[in-house]
Each structure stands twice: as C-alpha cells, then as structure tokens.
Design a protein around this nucleic acid. Structure first.
Length: 469
DNA sequence: CCTGGAGTTGTCCTA
DNA sequence: TTAGGACAACTCCAG
C-alpha cells in the first residue's frame, strides 16, 4: 500500500479540508507532513509564533484520531521528494495557495514530484471562489469591490466537507523533527506570554468561536461592528489566516443565520468576500503585495525611513488616544479592531506621510491574523495607491473617530495606562509585552500629540493634491 | 463603442 | 443642533 502524503500548509484543520479528504479518499495510509521551508523565512515574529501554536494544535487533533503530524524542514521540493522516496508514497495532496512566492514554490514541487513518478495535485480550500472563476462581463478581473460582491453573493457555495472518519495510519511512521526544537517562538521574546492570553488556537476553538458569534452577535454585527470596545466582531480572522476554519464553514453558518432572520449577518458575508477580493487581486496583480498597485504613486513623497514619528506610532506614543490604544491592542493581542486599523493606517500614511510599506511590515511582524493579501490591500486602500482606493481627501481624524466610536472612552482606557489612577490590567499588560529597550513604564505621563492634527491634515491634503499624476 | 452611474468605512463648513 | 453639500478626477463596469 503506497501511502499518500498530505502536505499541510495554512490549512490546519480536519473538517472541510478538500486536500485531506482527497488524500483519505484514495484509500491508502495517509502521512500528514508539514515542511518548514524557505517561504517561512520571511515571516514576522507574531505570525511565525502563532503558526507554531496552530501546528501544535493540529498535531494534537491528529493524534486523537490515531494519526500524526510529521515535521520536516528544508526546501519543500527536496524534502517532499525525499520523504516520498523514504516512505514509498505514490501521491501528494495539498491546499492551493495564491501568492507569487508560494505559487512558484508549488510549481517547482509539483514538477519535481511528477518527475519522480509521484502523483502530485493541489486542491482548493483556502478560498470560497477560485480567483480565475470570477470575471467581469468582458472577461477581465474585478478591480472594484462592489461589482465583485454582486458577482459572487448569489453563488452556490458547496456545503463544507465533514471531517474524515478515520485517517489511515502507515505501518511505520517516518521520523519527525520536534516542534519545540524549531524555536518558532524565539523572535517573539517577551511578548509571547502576553499575546498567548488572547490567542484562540486550533480548529475546535475556531468552530466554537464561529458558533458563539452566530448565536450571540451576528444579528447585531452590522450595527455594532464599528465600536472597538464592544465584542461585536467575530475574531475569526486569526483562525481563517491559518486555516483552522474554512471560509466555506463561515459562509454556510452565516447563510443559516440569515435564513433565521438575522439580517445583520449579511454584512459578515461581505467581510468574508473582502478576504476573497484581496486574494483575487493578489492572484491577478501580485505586485500589490510589494509595490504601489497604481504605479503613479511611486512618485509620491512618502517617507521611507524610520522617523521619530514612525517610532512613536509603533510604540503607541503618538499622543493620539485612538491611535495609541490601537497600536497597543496590536502589540498585546496580536490583532486590532478593523476600524482601528483604518485609523492607524490613515494616521501613518497621511498625517505622518509615511510609506504604507512601513506600516504593512510592522503589521506583518505583529499580527497573529497576518494575511498577506488582506494586509496589502488594506494598506493600499487607505494610502490611496490601491484599487478601489479611498479618495485623497478622506483623512481620518483620530479625535473625531474616538468621539464617534468610543464615546465613553472604554477602548482608550482599556489600552492606555498613563495618567490613570487605576489603570486596567490590559493597559498594564502592554508594558510587560514590549521590549525593555523601549524604556516604557506605566508611570510615565501620557505624551502630548507629536503633531497637531489640523496641521497634519493640511499637510497631507497638500501633498495628495500636489501629486503629479 | 459609447454612456452614465457608481465607487466600504470621512471631514468640515454652512445654512 | 443637525443635515446637506463640497471636497477631484478618474476608473471601473454594466447596459
């Protein structure tokens, strides 16, 4: 019986996993293997750490059903070829990826395996709709979200696949590295203990999270989602990022909620489709990940060096309470409320006229829900260089936003300890999480605004108006 | 090929 | 106090 290798990637789940189901369907022993390869060398500290936690959870789930997770490291093509030879595997299955680095690697892997007589194939699973299946009336790809949404909202999304009843084990297991020996948590340093309190790891926890969200909050999602102090959002970005839950499972749960009359739920469907749209753009225009999507913006005078303003932004010490609260939320929880992401991004790219790539990189280092497609699209949307971008005059005023969306200051106090008689635990935990070298203490006084908002706005508008394209 | 309506998330000023 | 309009020009997309 030639075994089948299930190559584990950002699909850390057993249910609704077409690659795994297909591997099982072939009727041979299945060897789940994760390969720590060159793609991961570019990962930021928090994503790498969080992915490690997810791998640990998947290993546990596999163990519970009599299987295992084999860990190997090295160039994926070499590792998989060697493992196939070692185990006599006749086939490899995996979930498809859509970003250029992974696509290039996967193409290489497939060619190498096929050259040595191994049946190698990728399957969907990361997305609801394969990017090449969504086309405009004239056969192009969508560059604007709304028509994209209209094109897919009525589509029939197949029901999620059940978890395979059993995953047949091989007679002997190939050797595996130890997860702890990889030290995926090393770059996190002090932050890991603090962020760990907030992470919700693994498939079972993700499914619980979806269930609770649909039960308790999805009906109010449309109205409450913009208030960062409220537990109104799903929090599922973290689990979707690592494939601990499938978008299809989220889609169907939401549709059921809509059928039950929970009308606010459709807005959650729209958010899932934003994720699709981001991958759709990455697929058709991969340069969105690294460069201005509209090339004219290459001449825009954003600052590209690490100014004192940028340092204050990263450390949550700009003197703008909404910005600072959000940046600390990011550091402590590894996530940030959606509205807050727009505000800190607007502040960095407009008030501080700093290149969106600096913000993108910082997010990529800190987010436990880091998703290359969503992150790139979001930053370019705010900066104005992306498709479907915000008009240049849309400059978020962090003060106004605070009054509107955190009127009683709950969110700000949750994350800012300075000048408070009795600071909240969450606010204090920020000082446990940050590096010592930042020299921050809750006893410091809260900083004055590093720039005047009106001045910053005027400067941003002038720069945006003066652009030469 | 042409036409026309639309475009996630805002702010500020004026009446 | 609050609602409405200005703030650009352009690209996108369906008809």
């Amino acid at each position: 019986m030639k075994p089948v290798i299930w190559w584990v990637r950002k699909d850390l789940r057993l249910s609704d996993n077409p690659a795994l189901s297909e591997a099982v369907r072939l009727g041979k022993p299945v060897i789940p293997v994760f390969v720590l390869d060159e793609v991961f060398s570019g990962y930021g500290a928090a994503p790498l750490w969080r992915f490690g936690l997810g791998l640990g959870a998947l290993a546990q789930s596999l163990k519970a059903v009599g299987s295992r997770l084999v860990l190997r490291r090295g160039p994926a093509a070499q590792v998989l070829e060697k493992l196939a030879a070692e185990t006599g595997a006749g086939a490899v299955r995996w979930s498809r990826a859509y970003d250029p680095d992974q696509v290039a690697r996967d193409t290489k892997v497939k060619a190498a395996l096929q050259a040595s007589g191994v049946d190698a194939a990728s399957l969907p699973g990361h997305l609801l709709f394969e990017p090449w299946t969504v086309e405009t009336g004239t056969g192009g790809y969508y560059k604007v979200y709304s028509p994209f949404w209209r094109a897919v909202r009525g589509r029939d999304v197949p029901a999620p696949l059940p978890e395979p009843g059993t995953i047949p084990a091989p007679e002997t297991w190939p050797a595996s590295d130890g997860l702890e020996d990889w030290g995926l948590d090393r770059p996190m340093q002090r932050g890991a203990d603090v962020v760990r309190r907030h992470a919700v790891v693994g498939e079972a926890a993700a499914l619980d999270r979806l269930g609770t969200f649909i039960e308790d909050r999805i009906a109010q999602y449309k109205e409450r989602r913009d208030f960062p102090a409220e537990p109104a959002t799903s929090g599922l970005s973290e689990n979707l990022a690592w494939g601990e839950i499938s978008p299809r499972t989220c889609w169907h749960g939401t549709v059921r909620a809509m059928d039950e009359g929970k009308t606010g739920a459709e807005h959650f469907l729209k958010e899932l489709v934003w994720r699709e749209f981001a991958y759709h753009l990455v697929w058709h225009t991969p340069h969105i990940l690294l460069r201005n999507w509209r090339e004219g913006w290459d001449r825009f005078p954003w600052k590209t060096d690490q100014t004192p303003g940028f340092a204050a932004w990263t450390m949550g010490r700009t003197g703008q309470r909404f910005v600072d609260a959000a940046m600390r939320e990011l550091y402590v929880t590894g996530t940030m409320h959606n509205r807050a992401r727009m505000i800190v991004a607007s502040y960095l790219t407009k008030h501080l006229i700093t290149h969106w790539r600096l913000g993108q990189d910082w997010f990529a280092d800190c987010l436990i829900d880091w998703d290359p497609a969503s992150n790139a699209m979001g930053w370019q949307w705010v900066a104005g260089s992306g498709p479907d971008a915000a008009p240049y005059f849309r400059v978020f005023n962090p003060d106004t936003q605070l009054q509107k969306f955190d009127p009683d200051g709950t969110y700000a106090r949750r994350w800012i300890a300075e000048d408070e008689a009795a600071p909240s635990d969450t606010a204090l935990s920020y000082f446990q999480a940050v590096p010592k070298s930042w020299n921050l203490s809750p006893d410091m006084t809260y900083p004055q605004p590093i720039i005047d908002l009106a001045e910053g706005r005027a400067r941003a508008l002038a720069a945006y108006e003066a652009r030469v394209f």
